[in-house]
Nucleic acid binder design. Structure first.
Lengths: 195, 195, 195, 195
DNA sequence: ACCTCCGGGACTCCCCGTTAGT
DNA sequence: ACTAACGGGGAGTCCCGGAGGT
């Protein structure tokens, strides 16, 4: 168990990454230092070499979760694909995303937890929302109203959130599919008038 | 002092109502029996006269929160007002609703907690989603697609959720207003073709 | 997991008994609260319902170890057997006693630990030494000198202690047997002159 | 400042000597590398230039403690004094020896710690026991039985051990004196018949 | 229904052995 | 050989859920 500077950075990284996944699945309150460290191949005692307190970790983990969760979306957007917007919608409102919150978008997974938490977490959340809005705006047609990006983001976030909470699998699928379909229909209609 | 039977029922009611409010504000994990009982004018020890366990209470409180949170919306819908849909959207995406999750819609406040919890809670959540969808569908124009209700609900839920989590007050307001505006514009456009 | 008064007493008893065994095997420093509690069917957190601190437990455990460890010896002595003294010597300097310090005499297992520890532990140790001396004196012939009891006790304690520390099994056995034999020979010789 | 080679050897020597004293006073578990090194005029970090691990040091320190602790006894024995045996007994069961375990006999100070530890330590302990037995045998009269050496050694070891653990000073003194007296009386009696 | 308390688990702190880097 | 720091693990404290006993 080497003890170099690089090892520490690697441990830190592992812990944060692990925490970012866990809070998306189990919520912030559901994160236990002991389990987190065990899952990171370390023991409970070493935690305070990396973070001053649990709350410090949470701030960092929330930031990481937000960054990680939007990486794929950003990648699609920057691909220059003409259908980028549709791809994003389908991916966001997919069963895959619904069933794997730990690797998914933290804007959808954490709003309630962030709202109750540290101001730094809320600030990071806000930044991420702005980033999403910018990203979506850049993909919209000229004719689309500025507010459309807000609508898309809200529908995406609300859609997966509900799809995750619902018990009936058919209803859950319907939420994903119908929301995505309605969203894409709306975008097509919005672009129409400019034609 | 009233019959003890009636007293017990009143206490039970008070506890559940209180719990339904608290879980919407603090999350399910944030509910402590001690605080709940103190806030209900009782003491910690008396809890188990009313509920077999904390989990039993949670199930009941989730159901209550879902019912309470949709009551106002249902009232507006059944008022027969021609502008009912717009009223609902504005109320849902209002600062008031954003700032008072404890009396607001549990579909927006609890998806993550419910998703991780008891199947009974998830079933109740699903029922509530269906109720909302039915309600919204009944308010839509004939020409509107079935999926539109899904879009509206998703946007409403996502909208308040994000507005609550964001730190910057201006951004939070913008989320509410822009989402509402875009939503209404979409509905108007959707109704247009049928005219 | 009942929580009555009786249950607590039972838990307390289990913990102390367990601790008394563990310190005789692993030494006082070798006792960890976590392991002790786990071995007692409880968790670390519950410990402080029973003891104000680790040190408080140690005092109690030392007393228990001393009492337990001398119980068998006292039983033999009170049996009234004419050969009681020989029986005690053989039992004390037996392989069984050597190999099971956790159930054996704490006067032999703990002198170093007690010497470094709390005064209350040392007092209990002293009491036990006196008890042993009284017991042995009562078994000696009239003609025997008062100091003989000291010699016997010292030889017993030193004998097992060394037998436990030695690596070579033959040497270890020899220590037990030769010491016992020499002790009994001495007693016989000491009784002789009075004949 | 001398050659670095010599310096290193001197440091090594100082550390081991220091450790040998400390383990006799505080037990093996009570030895901390930091304190040991500070007490040796060095710093914590330099330890590993001298020893591969704490356990390696312990083995060496146990050997040293055993050797040091028996040096004085061996010196008395080899002095050729006719009263050597009595001198040894009195010195071993003296207040001085009782109160200074750090310079005293490790056979009395360490049996429990050695018993729980490394096999190399137990082997060294066994060798030392044999050395003591040989030494004592060489001082006994021809008529004495072979087992007498075992008895003497056991009584010496048990005597100081108990004298150290007991709280009451008078009892402690009594243990030393009475054991010594009884031991010498026994030897005299044993020698008698051959006269 | 209140009061008290037990047992559980978590967080925090601290010390120790060990190792890199100077 | 020193300085600094990492990871391990244990002690102590707190609060929570739950179960008696008044």
């Amino acid at each position: 168990v080497g003890s170099s500077q690089a090892d520490k950075a690697a441990s830190h990284e592992r812990i944060v990454r692990n925490a970012a996944a866990r809070i998306r699945r189990n919520g912030i309150d559901g994160l236990s230092i002991g389990e987190l460290m065990a899952g990171s191949g370390l023991t409970h005692g070493g935690f305070y070499r990396h973070f001053g307190s649990r709350d410090e970790l949470i701030v960092e983990a929330v930031r990481r979760a937000l960054a990680e969760g939007s990486a794929r979306t950003a990648a699609v957007a920057s691909s220059g694909d003409a259908e980028a917007l549709g791809t994003i919608i389908d991916a966001y409102l997919s069963r895959l995303h619904r069933d794997k919150p730990e690797t998914g978008c933290a804007v959808a997974a954490l709003p309630a937890d962030v709202a109750r938490g540290d101001a730094r977490g809320r600030a990071a959340y806000g930044d991420q929302v702005v980033a999403y809005l910018d990203l979506l705006s850049s993909l919209l047609s000229e004719g689309d109203d500025r507010g459309t990006a807000f609508l898309i983001l809200a529908a995406l976030v609300g859609g997966v959130s509900m799809a995750r909470a619902v018990d009936d699998p058919e209803l859950s699928d319907a939420i994903l599919q119908e929301t995505a379909a309605a969203l894409k229909r709306t975008l097509a209609a919005g672009a129409q008038p400019s034609a």
